[in-house]
């Protein structure tokens, strides 16, 4: 039995491709501050939450597994575009993306009524940065890595807000997205 229907595969592929495209756009952006990242590629991941089953037994566009598959696609896309696929940066990115993916999923699943994509995106950025700093303390840099954290957290908060506002607005207003949300 196939894991996803053809329609579902198409939607995952669409979101994955969008994420790859946004990674490219991000790569082309100049960085006003070193290490600054906007996190454009995360927009499809956040939006994807819209398509998941919100209550048990209710019909949904995509199963939860598809969300995590999309995160994997996002990380692979970023690895290809940024050329970090064969380095430790890739593993950090993978860990950060999955940690924040789980956090965003839980926030969305359990706080749905009281949170928008803005809060979800801020939490995602926070967890992604924390996970990556903890890994770099454990494996690469030692305790000096704590000093990097404030800058990353500050950037993450600002970019998390911007991406969240965009995703929320897009999810509310886009006709294209509303069509993606249709179950049939």
């Amino acid at each position: 039995m196939p894991m996803f229907s053809e329609k579902q595969i198409n939607r995952i592929a669409m979101l994955g491709a969008l994420s790859l495209f946004l990674s490219t756009v991000e790569y082309l952006f100049p960085r006003p501050i070193p290490f600054m990242r906007l996190g454009l590629a995360n927009i499809p991941v956040i939006l994807c939450l819209d398509l998941l089953p919100s209550e048990k037994g209710r019909e949904s566009v995509l199963p939860t597994l598809a969300y995590f598959l999309l995160i994997l696609l996002k990380v692979l896309g970023q690895g290809i575009i940024n050329g970090t696929m064969a380095s430790y940066v890739f593993l950090f990115s993978l860990a950060g993306s999955f940690a924040s993916g789980v956090m965003m999923y839980l926030a969305w699943r359990f706080l749905k009524r009281n949170i928008t994509f803005v809060g979800i995106s801020i939490l995602g950025a926070l967890i992604s940065n924390m996970a990556q700093i903890i890994l770099s303390i454990a494996f690469i840099f030692g305790s000096t890595a704590w000093r990097i954290l404030p800058l990353f957290l500050g950037i993450g908060l600002v970019s998390g807000c911007i991406m969240g506002i965009f995703a929320q607005r897009f999810s509310e207003k886009s006709l294209w997205w509303n069509k993606m949300r249709d179950i049939k």
Binding site: N114, A125, L126, G164
Partner: peptide, 17 residues
């Protein structure tokens, strides 16, 4: 504001800050 924020948005913001 272009969007309406909910309580946990503020909570996430304040926690992060």
């Amino acid at each position: 504001l272009p969007i309406t924020l909910k309580p946990f948005d503020w909570a996430a913001f304040i926690l992060s800050l």
